[in-house]
Write a protein that binds this DNA or RNA. Structure first.
Lengths: 356, 356
DNA sequence: CTGTTAGCGCTTTCAT
DNA sequence: ATGAAAGCGCTAACAG
């Protein structure tokens, strides 16, 4: 591969001039630019990113921290990030945390080490007091651009993008309550932290507004996955005072919950109403089609990347945020509450009581 | 950040010694190792990957080329790759081609430029004569480790991993034929190229074996996506001699096809049998649950990464391959052929003929 | 087993 | 507007 020296020699200029031409910052005479570009073309020259990274500590790499690329929400968000970033020739390094705080810290360190120019931290586990949180804030103090999605790091100058998830969750509860449900459970991830908190808060607030009971047994933490949803629903179904409706922290969990119901011989929505969150493409195709709160995953990613790009250009600009709307999509997994549900079912071993 | 010189000084050794310790290749006395490690710990030293990459041209980065991270098959495969690679401290750079050969060539160039230590090229578009193919082979000639998944590059020493997709496709056709279908269509991607060829060949071979007609109008190329499947199915339904069953190149396409049927007022499987490919997690949850050929996506990715790791260690070892099994999963989208289907339906404007 | 010495290819003052 | 020269932090012969 040709180096900058080769190009310089062929163009009859100094290497530094070639560098300037390629980095379009300093002012160079038009004819020099032309000569350099021609020489570069002749030699098929392409700057070596490692060398320029070493010299300038700019690598054109950004780290994207997500919980799991297999979640369609995350992969869509990732695509938004990549599509935006690649227009500026950045590459995106995607790392998964699996919702594990230790792992998150590890991958964060790893990509920092690698010299990324910035981070986008999406569905993370960092709460408000954890070590990672500290770590992330330290990064920003070192001047590293960070944008978070779905989670605001207070006390740090980080840009963030989020959706009105709290409103979305409230709309879901409103919908369920309007259908006559009183016993509404929430199946969450680590509900007190991370990206789930908005939904969690919205759930509680709406329940209170409707004068509905917040029963601790109805607020479950689980893995944010199909399996997690299945398992949580199974636990819920084993309860003496089983709820009649569920708000799930995301569609994966909701889908898993539907599975669990089916396995126990329950019909959704006849015997159990379920509302998801995200509106992944498969929500509409599920059996039955999932009622859910849509989040603009792609947009979220795209906007996050835009904010990051802006911050990298203007490190001292005031922090910005982009807040996008959620929208309740009514499909077929939530239906009117039937009073029969409160009677013990002949086919079920567990008595079904009305909640206190 | 501490540099290798700082550590060397503190440990009272030469920088090269520190380098050797960290790269565990040369033999170093135990006590020197201990001293160096201690110094490194004291200074919180971490080697700079850019510097070492520049000096050694090993970057601990590998490029993963897929068509679209949003396809659950791809994201699962990607996860397999990442999980394997991260154990050896490699990071994975995921790039999407969207099935566009030009874009593929572009991203390939880009990550090559970045100095990746190897490539994994999964569902690509490279056929057997295209420019990219040439490009990839050139890379291997330059000594760059490449493993392809699902597609064998002949004339090149590349390792590859694949599934017995051809057998899988044949099993699907066998199933459909056994159900009495004769008019079986194939909705493919770019069927003559890339990862789809195995399925395409399997389809044809099985059709021939069963003495079934290979009608050109029944072999469609389309985008490998929900929309693509929907669109292709719509085209198929507009045909005068509509097929009674479909083999789709993957689950996304199959799911899209189901949508199209529903939109046209057709029941699946009563009016149209459909079989997918991949068995993405959502296939089982679809309405109705999708009959499909399962591919071990995660395994495929994991194994690809393992082969790559091996080749990077032993550049001159003979090419290896890993070939995994596919498995037909019979669910509910394919059912016995009903002779009524050949009569023009009262509800449909298009006459339905038996195929020639 | 360990030290010395050149680079790897680019950027960046500092001059001019 | 352009050139000269000193690194960025590490590795890899080559000695010894």
């Amino acid at each position: 591969m040709a180096t900058i020296y080769d190009v310089a020699k062929r163009a009859g200029v100094a290497p530094s001039t070639v560098s300037r031409v390629f980095n379009k910052n300093a002012s160079i005479s038009a004819k020099t630019v032309a000569r350099v570009m021609q020489a570069a073309r002749d030699l098929d020259y392409d700057p070596n990113p490692l060398a320029s990274g070493l010299a300038s500590s700019r690598t054109l790499m950004v780290g994207l921290v997500i919980s799991d690329i297999q979640n369609p929400f995350s992969s869509t968000l990732a695509r938004g990030v990549q599509d935006s970033l690649e227009r500026e020739r950045y590459i995106t390094i995607i790392v998964n945390t699996d919702g594990d705080p230790d792992k998150e810290l590890g991958v964060l360190r790893e990509i920092y080490r690698r010299g990324v120019d910035g981070f986008i931290i999406a569905p993370p586990q960092h709460g408000n007091a954890a070590e990672h949180n500290r770590y992330i804030i330290d990064l920003t103090h070192k001047g590293l651009p960070v944008v978070t999605v779905g989670n605001w790091l207070k006390d740090a100058k980080v840009d963030y993008v989020t959706s009105r998830a709290q409103d979305g969750a409230m709309a879901a509860v409103d919908h369920l309550a309007g259908l006559g449900h009183r016993a509404i459970a929430f199946i969450g991830g680590h509900t007190t932290r991370g990206v789930a908190v908005g939904r969690w808060l919205g759930y509680q607030e709406a329940m209170l507004q409707h004068g509905l009971p917040l029963c601790p047994a109805w607020m479950l933490e689980t893995d944010v996955s199909l399996q997690g949803g299945e398992e949580a629903m199974t636990r819920l179904l084993a309860l003496p005072n089983r709820p009649s409706a569920i708000l799930a922290v995301n569609d994966l969990v909701a889908l898993g919950a539907i599975n669990a119901c089916r396995n126990q011989g329950l019909q959704v929505p006849a015997d159990m109403s379920i509302v998801g969150f995200d509106d992944i493409p498969y929500a509409a195709m599920a059996a039955p089609p999932l009622t859910t709160v849509a989040q603009p995953a792609y947009e979220l990613g795209y906007r996050a990347a835009e904010l990051l790009l802006q911050r990298m250009r203007a490190p001292d600009a005031p922090a910005q945020q982009a807040i996008l709307d959620c929208r309740l999509i009514v499909r077929q997994t939530a239906t009117a509450y039937r009073t029969e549900l409160i009677k013990p079912s002949a086919t079920k071993p567990n008595g079904v009581d009305r909640e206190p």
